[in-house]
């Protein structure tokens, strides 16, 4: 399981988000990942290290290649966490619906007096 702080911190960088988006379409090597970016391979490798440390990607050894892919557990943990927060926020606003409805009823009552 990834550390959520490390995971969100890793996601705060646009290059790393682009790398994850690319990996969502399938496994890739550093060389393939570096191709679309105007940055060096060592820089991409550093980003991969951050993503790996955050539990968002895993790498395997295949001869001299070290292809990367998304770490299913890490990505799912983030979505699960966001869903939990989303529920808490939704409950706030569902309660606000009730408060607004009560305000409206009161207004109508006062208007009819």
């Amino acid at each position: 399981m990834p550390n959520l702080n490390a995971a969100f911190s890793a996601l705060s960088d646009p290059t790393r988000r682009a790398i994850l988006a690319r990996l969502a379409t399938g496994e890739a090597t550093v060389l393939e990942l570096a191709a679309p970016f105007a940055i060096t391979q060592p820089a991409i490798s550093r980003h991969l290290k951050v993503l790996e440390g955050a539990g968002l990607i895993v790498r395997r050894i295949d001869g001299t290649r070290r292809p990367c892919r998304l770490a299913k557990g890490g990505i799912e943990a983030i979505y699960q966490w966001l869903a939990t927060l989303r529920d808490a926020l939704s409950r706030n606003y569902d309660r606000l619906d009730e408060v607004l409805a009560a305000m409206n009823r009161e207004k109508e009552r006062n208007g009819h007096e």
């Binding site: 959520l4 702080n5 995971a7 969100f8 911190s9 996601l11 646009p14 988000r17 682009a18 994850l20 988006a21 969502a24 990505i75 983030i78 966490w81 966001l82 869903a83 939990t84 927060l85 989303r86 808490a88 926020l89 939704s90 706030n92």
Partner: peptide, 20 residues
Amino acid sequence: LATGMEHGMEASYVRLEGLL
């Protein structure tokens, strides 16, 4: 986003900009 501060408000459809 990671700690869900601000009364657990921060996330619904966080798109993560293109991710998945």
